[in-house]
Structures are given as structure tokens and as C-alpha cells.
Design a protein around this nucleic acid. Structure first.
Lengths: 204, 204
DNA sequence: GTCTATAATTAGATAGAC
DNA sequence: GTCTATCTAATTATAGAC
């Protein structure tokens, strides 16, 4: 057995591991401080690496941001698939309810998604347009087609942003919520309560 | 008539006018780019003033941020009062419904509130604690006491963040919403539709 | 592949002219 | 009260040693 034996790590493997560490750190940094507020030095520090290494693996701060966005949306897709696979539903409505719960659970586990979305969605920019074209449109399309009978189609954009906001905010501002209400949004039962609450509102 | 005649502006008046212009620009800047991402030079430019002038009127970037936060919460209080004053309601429930509508209208007109809140609420910081103590606790307290019969008091923190998120997000990310859905959240009828939708969800 | 060193720009805060 | 000039520190991106 050569350099690719179990226990050793090939160069390609280490490269990928380092890139992953940096992308993970970038996701945290960008979500925490926004694109402008986050510094590449801080991201490098979080990743346990050097600032110069970021430019080597990713060409620019902008490209690193795109990699971080790709990562969080990839996690979203994977999480929704895993939470829903194998489940059977008598009605589309029941499926939609479980989809909402799954989304809320993801928002709780990965508040970075909402933070990133608000930070970029509030300004017109190349990053915003890239986000819409590459990640939001497929999701929004699925939101349209994933239900059969809808009372009023003109309400769908409203329902989309209501779900995103109602399902995510409490987790996105968790430190504030703890301070203000005493409730810890990270607690398992709090997450489930919130998921049921939001699902019950949108699909009573 | 002397220096305080109508038509002329006293020194105190000009001072106040300049401060207001700077605070307004700061509110926009901080909401748009976050505390770290916003630069005092950019804020000065928006206010049509010089960077040095910001340090003269406010001692630091931090103090300027507090003035901007005071402003947006002052506007919120004023708007809610004005929208609700003189109205009579048969039941508390009816009043609560109109309070929700009024809040959504404010969120539409001043998306800076939500942007600021998310930007600060996601991290533990002195600014976050100041925000909770000086502005959020009174609001949250009113949210608790403003209704009589509540099905389950343990759901109130959830309802609070659901209302804030559901009522504000579509306006906070208006540029993204336009691009993604074609809907303009700033349009009058869209605001009213959203207000009715959110009020109907929380108080069916 | 990872690091150090550094160039060019921009940041917040201060000092002083007017 | 408002501006210009400047200090110190931090920013992104690049060049080159190992």
C-alpha cells in the first residue's frame, strides 16, 4: 500500500480538508459580520490558517463568499432530503407541513443561512443577483410547485417570505432572544415548539 | 425681530438640523452594511458633511450608532401611536389585529429597523445588551401585557419573533424580493396585503 | 501547499485652521 | 460649527521564501 493507504492522507485529500475548513470559517465570518464587515484575516484565524492561504485556494474575498454560499445552500438541500426521505403522506398538505418543520429545524441548526440572506438581500449587488440565479430561484420554484390547491396564488410570495422570516428569525438572533426572553432558541424542545407553531400558522 | 425671526435659523436650530442629517445617514449606513461594514466616511458623505464633523457632534462611531438606534425606535413608537390613536375596538383581539397591521406598515416604510436588529441581535455585544435594555424590553413587555386571554403563555416568545420576522423580512430584503418574485414590496397594495396576511395568520 | 513580507487602500480618531 | 490634514491601525491582494 502506498501513499493512499488508510491512515495517511493524500495531497488531494489534505487540499480538500483545508478548503473545507476555510469555507466553514468563511461562512461563520460572513454570517456574523456581513460581507464588508468580515475580514479575511479573521476568517483565516478561525480556520487556523494564514491569510495568504485564502488567496491561494480562492482567488478573492468575493469568490470565497460564493463558496461559503454554495456550502450553506448545499447543506440546506441535503438536510431537507434527509429529513423527508422515506416519509409517506396521505395528502400534499401533510407533506407541506413536514417540509415546513424540516426547514425550521435547519434554520435552528444553521442560523448562518438567514444571516447571509438578510445581509445580501437588502442591497442590489452582483452577489445578490448571483444568489437569486444560482440558489434562490430553484428553491422558490419548488415552493410554487410543491403544493397543489392554493387558495390565492398571488399570496405565494408573501407566504414564502413569511415562512423564511417566521421560521428563522428567532434562531438568527439567538443571543438577543436569550437576553430578552430568557428562552434559549438552541434547545431541542424550543426548536420543535417553534417548528410546530410556524407549521400550524401556515397550514392550520 | 432679531436672529430668531421666522425665516432665519438660529445656531441651535442649525446644530440640530445637522445632527439630524447625520443620524439619518448613519441609520441608513448601519442598516445597509452593518456596524462594522459601515464607514464613518461613507455616512458623512451621505449626510453631505465631513468626516471630522461626525466626531464633533458624536464622540465615536459607537455613540453615533446609539443615536441612530434611538432614532429608529423613536420613529416606531411615534408611528404606532399615530396609527392607533382615536381608534375604538369592541374586543382586545380587534385591537391586537390592528396593532399587527400598524407594525407591518412601519416595517415596510422603515426596513432599517429589521436590518439593524438582525445585524446586532446575532452577536453578543455591548450594543446588543444596550439595545435590549433600552428599547427591546419595553416593547416586549408591551407585547406581553397588550393582550388579555392567551392560550399558552409559553408561546409568547415564539409569537413575538414570528411577528417580527414574518412582518418585516419581505421589506428588509426588498431588492432581492423584486428580483426573485417580480413583486415590489414597497407598493402600497403589497404592503396592505402583507399586513392583512400576517394579521390573519396570528389572529385568525 | 503553507507561510512571511509587503504594497496600496481604507478605517476611526485627533489636531488645528478658519 | 465645519473643514482639511494627518496619525495609527486594519484592510485586501500580491510576491516570493520554504
Amino acid at each position: 500500500m502506498g501513499a493512499t493507504t488508510e491512515g495517511t492522507t493524500s495531497r488531494a485529500e489534505q487540499r480538500e480538508a483545508t478548503r473545507e475548513r476555510i469555507v466553514e470559517a468563511a461562512l461563520e465570518g460572513f454570517a456574523e459580520r456581513g460581507f464588508r464587515g468580515a475580514s479575511t484575516r479573521d476568517i483565516a484565524r478561525r480556520a487556523g490558517a494564514n491569510q495568504g492561504l485564502l488567496t491561494y485556494h480562492f482567488k478573492s474575498k468575493d469568490a470565497l463568499w460564493r463558496a461559503a454560499a454554495d456550502r450553506i445552500f448545499g447543506l440546506l438541500r441535503k438536510s431537507l432530503e434527509e429529513q423527508l426521505e422515506g416519509l409517506e403522506f396521505a395528502e400534499v398538505r401533510d407533506r407541506n407541513r413536514e417540509e415546513i418543520r424540516a426547514f425550521v429545524r435547519f434554520a435552528a441548526e444553521h442560523p448562518e443561512l438567514f444571516r447571509l440572506m438578510v445581509d445580501e438581500g437588502k442591497n442590489s449587488s452582483e452577489r445578490m443577483e448571483w444568489l437569486v440565479e444560482n440558489h434562490l430561484e430553484p428553491i422558490y420554484e419548488g415552493f410554487w410547485q410543491g403544493r397543489d390547491a392554493v387558495p390565492d396564488e398571488s399570496l405565494l410570495p408573501h407566504a414564502y417570505y413569511v415562512l423564511a422570516g417566521a421560521g428563522s428569525l428567532i434562531f438568527a438572533v439567538a443571543p438577543e432572544c436569550r437576553r430578552l426572553t430568557g428562552l434559549d432558541p438552541a434547545a431541542r424542545e424550543v426548536v420543535e415548539t417553534h417548528a410546530d407553531f410556524v407549521a400550524g400558522l401556515l397550514l392550520p
